[in-house]
Every structure is written in C-alpha cells, then in structure tokens.
Design a protein around this nucleic acid. Structure first.
Lengths: 176, 176
DNA sequence: CGGATGATCTTTCCAGTGTCAAGATAGAAG
DNA sequence: CTTCTATCTTGACACTGGAAAGATCATCCG
C-alpha cells in the first residue's frame, strides 16, 4: 500500500508476499474491505499513541500544541495510511473496532482542547476550529500543496506546519 | 463514481452506460488515470466557478468568508469529486491541465486572503492558516466527523461550518 | 486413547477488470 | 478519388476479488 497507494493494493500480491495462497487473506479478513478496515483501525491506534507520546505531561495550551504536532507528524510520516483512515471509501465505517479506535484518538484532541481553553464543559466550537485547522494542515502537507514562503526552508514539511499550529492554538486559548 | 465511490468506478461500466464498447474510453483518455485526471481538472474548474459565484462583488473580510463558504459548499455538494481532486492516488498530479485548473482555484483563495488582510504582498502564513482551516472543515464534513453541538440543528452540514469559517476569517483579518 | 471441533490454509473456479494491438468506419482535406 | 485522421470495435491477455469445497493439523473432551 505504501509503495503504490491504496488503489494498487491487491489481496493477491499481499498473499504472495506473505508466502500464502491468494485466498488465505480472505479467510482472516472476509474481504478486502475487511482487511483495509483492520489496517485503518490499527492506524488510529498508532495515531493515538503518537499524540500521547508527543504530549507527554504538557498542560494548558502547550498540550494542545503538542497534540496538534503529533497529529500532523503522524499524517506526514505515514500519509497513505492516514488517508486510508480518514478518507478512503474502501473501509467499513460501521466497523466497531474502527469506530472505537477513532473515538479514542478523538478523545486525545478533546482533552487537549479542554486543557487549552480551561473550560470544564466541552466546547464544540473550539473543537471544530482546532480539528479543522490541524486536519486541513495535515491533508495539504500530505499532498505537498503548501509551498515554503520566500526565505523559508522546505526540507521538513513539519516545519511548515509549526507556525500555523501555534496560531491555531493561540486562537483557541483566547476563545471566549 | 458518485454512486459507489472512486474505487468502484470502472472503465467498462462507464463505457456501457455511454453506449460504447469497453475500449472506447481508452482511446480518448489513454488509461483510467487519464480519465480520472480529466474529471479532476474539470472539478477544479467548477470549484473556481462556485467560489466566484459565492464571492460576488464582496470586498474585505466578507470576500474571504464567502470564498470559504463556496469552497466548503462545493466539497459538501460533490464529495467524491472533491476527494478525487485533492487526495486520490489515481490521478496524474503532473498533468498540466490539472495543475493549471488547480492553480486558478488557488488564485481565488489568494486574492480573498489579500482582501481580508489588506496587505498588498502575499502573506504565506495567512494563506496557510485560511486554507488549512477551510480545507480541514470541508474534509471533516465530507466524512461526517463533526457532530452538532447540543441544541444545534444538524440538518444542513454547511450550517455547522458557518461559525468556524467566521472564526477563521476573523482571525485572519486581525493578523499582524 | 480417539473422535469431534475449529482454525488455517489450499485448490479450483468464475465473472469482472485494465490495457493492448489490430482492424473497421466514416467524414474531411487535398 | 485518394489520403488522413478521429472514432470506435473486436478480440485477446494477464490480472483481480471472491466463492465453494476440501485438506491439514493442533486442541479439547470424554
């Protein structure tokens, strides 16, 4: 999948590399959607882990900044899986494991936003704002749609995100 | 494509519905990537038209708000094509027609951001912030990942975006 | 010990797919 | 009247996902 994109992924090639016959995968995952759904679910688990690691024990708006950085970093480091997780029409969105893995990742964002706003009750507006900004950043970076400003180094795509993330966090921290 | 997603699109079924034989499309578009690329390019032309129509003759930060609304509205009204345009691995990103159509759509955003900031020189930070926010909003709405706040009607997905777009625009208008 | 059970994988088959090469058709150009 | 070009067809090939049926084998239970 990483080599040639989701569309080029094939059960048979997958089985070949695993050293089994072409219908062994079908036995374990039902069909190709089942397999991709499992891969996506594990992707969400990895996203959660990445965000937690990046957050560490940070508090306040620093926590949100780091969660955002972890989110974008994960997307950039594994773009094909990230796209599969969020925007592929080849996964089963109703799958319970996928849903709960997604919800857990989302929970990290919720708690970080709460840390940044200092509010006890969930602020849906702040959540939407934060998620949209960070997710859009991730998607645009994946597609290499953002160009470095004049004088800015482009070597690390994450560096391009840093300023925007800071701006998002700052805006949220001053939400009223 | 709209009926069953990009992954289920088939040249042969396409030809069947067009009333021609299975390899007529190949003659016109080379291969399936060529056809999808053409569809994506026309998608960008429609996106541009949609944003222009929504902007009308608005000026200042109102212009940016409307451009953002047009962007999101297009994405929500034709999600499969929007996804194809931005994040499919089945289009040829190097295609000149696709690139120029994309650049023209981007130009609308650039000019709207300039209108909102009032700056004459292009502000890359503001651009990134605006584009990330609006694009992320569009993607999350497409995937139905945003839930209405308590007491908020969910009937129209665009309504969920309105507040966030306003917040983005306001933040940009006060960029310094 | 010995049979039942269930998990894992294989074999075989089918309809469907993208792509290619070669040919047909027909209108326009000269 | 010939040539050219665009459009499409015919026929073939290797590949795909999936279904059905069977093989192998460890484990459990009496």
């Amino acid at each position: 999948m990483r080599e040639r994109g989701v569309h080029a992924f094939s059960l048979r090639e997958c089985a070949r590399r695993a050293g089994v016959t072409h219908s062994a995968p079908g036995h374990h995952f039902g069909d190709i959607t089942g397999l991709l759904t499992e891969v996506a679910a594990r992707g969400f688990e990895r996203l959660t882990a990445r965000m937690r690691a990046e957050r560490g024990d940070a508090e306040g708006s620093s926590a949100l900044h780091r969660i955002g950085r972890g989110y974008v970093a994960f997307a950039v480091s594994d773009p094909v899986i990230f796209l599969l997780m969020f925007h592929s029409d080849r996964v089963d969105r109703g799958n319970p494991k996928l849903q709960s893995a997604g919800a857990e990742a989302f929970g990290e964002l919720v708690s970080a936003v709460a840390a940044a706003t200092g509010k006890s009750s969930r602020d849906e507006d702040a959540l939407r704002f934060a998620w949209s900004g960070v997710h859009g950043m991730a998607m645009l970076l994946i597609d290499r749609r953002l160009k470095p400003a004049p004088g800015e180094r482009a070597s690390d795509p994450l560096a391009l995100a840093e300023g925007t993330i800071a701006r998002i966090v700052h805006t949220i921290a001053t939400f009223r």
